[in-house]
């Protein structure tokens, strides 16, 4: 099955299509991705900026979280 979210997913799409991802990311220490204006970058760029070591692993966990929510 195609993952809901990938490293290339734009943050604007993420917060619009998968708002619960904000909850997951905040709990994972990645905050303020939508205050005022969603970040103008991809999830991959955000995780790199946040110095997340294994960003693919975090995205996998996010997908799992989103699937469980559905």
């Amino acid at each position: 099955m195609k993952p809901l979210v990938t490293l290339d997913t734009q943050i604007e799409d993420l917060v619009l299509k998968h708002p619960k991802s904000v909850h997951f990311l905040t709990k994972s220490g990645i905050r303020c991705i939508r205050c005022g204006e969603p970040l103008w970058c991809s999830l991959g760029e955000l995780l790199e900026d946040e110095k997340v070591k294994d960003s693919q692993h975090l995205v996998d966990k996010l997908n799992q979280f989103l699937e469980e929510q559905d």
Binding site: L16, P19, V22, H23, C35
Partner: peptide, 13 residues
């Protein structure tokens, strides 16, 4: 937005 609600709930947790 719905994302704003999620943001709030996560902050409260």
């Amino acid at each position: 937005t719905k994302a704003a609600v999620e943001d709030m709930m996560a902050a409260l947790e």
